[in-house]
Design a protein around this nucleic acid. Structure first.
Lengths: 151, 151
DNA sequence: TATTGTTATACTCTATAACTATA
DNA sequence: TATAGTTATAGAGTATAACAATA
């Protein structure tokens, strides 16, 4: 992977970071209208598609630390979007569920996300989903890979 | 851009973040042997290829905030890798230059970076530089793009 | 007035360790 | 003893405002 011509000493890691910050920032401003942050949006959307999970289960699903997810959910609960229902058989874990308003919001966020990602895909490669799919595969490969000296 | 199958409600932004953290972490551990952080490595390599810049000029070049770059350079100056030479004609800006040891380190880091990026490229697409180049173009496109509602 | 480097400060996201109450 | 949620705390990286010295 060669370095970018405009930044000769900044490599793939740097470029990924720059892209990530940019995209995240755009996504954050897109959902600001709903008064949620990107982590909150992820939690809400995950809960909408898998209601009743415990906090740790949800954390596993979206690959967050339980403590961070806990703090992410806090303001959402205060706003009456998420509630922790007690479980009869285990009083440690609560069942996380969305309220009707939470469900509405999650639906809006999912629509916004679909639109946002479609816009990104269009920017990347208008009309050619194949290469976008390749980007996804590439990122998925890099995500867990263990770069090590070539033999 | 469709979402990842294993994380239905986590989109492109999340995936980019995950990849970025992973790659950054691997890179950080790779250069830990040299006792430098990724931002320090970027600054050192940039200074090696463009010596004599002022702090603000260097900051512009690597797209960092001057204050953050200032703090990045501080420990490097203490270790005798970078020094701020006074400029005769402008006593506000100093000329940043690498010491011989700093130059050695920068060379090692550049070699490590080339190796690291080559490993990433190999992971992505062994033997096919074209698609790697496409990834770079894709990231470069996304980097400054302004996603906006399609017409 | 404008610019350089810096101080002080804060924000976002993430992470580790240890506590408490349950099981 | 093991697990669930939480508290306290910390870290990296980034950012804004303003200030003193200098131009």
């Amino acid at each position: 992977m060669s370095t970018s011509p405009t930044h000769p000493e900044l490599g793939a890691g740097w470029l990924l970071g720059a892209v990530h910050r940019h995209i995240r920032s755009r996504w954050a401003e897109r959902i600001r209208a709903y008064d949620v942050t990107p982590p909150q949006a992820a939690a809400l959307r995950a809960l909408a598609s898998a209601p009743g999970l415990s906090l740790r289960e949800l954390a596993r699903q979206i690959e967050a630390e339980p403590i961070n997810l806990s703090r992410t959910l806090e303001p959402l609960e205060e706003r009456g979007l998420v509630c922790r229902e007690p479980r009869p058989n285990d009083r440690r874990a609560h069942a996380l569920v969305l309220t009707p308003r939470g469900l509405d919001l999650a639906a809006s966020l999912t629509a916004a996300a679909a639109e946002f990602e479609h816009e990104l895909a269009t920017l990347l490669d208008p009309g050619f989903d194949q290469t976008v799919a390749w980007l996804h595969r590439a990122l998925a490969t890099l995500r867990t890979s263990e770069p090590s000296q070539p033999g």
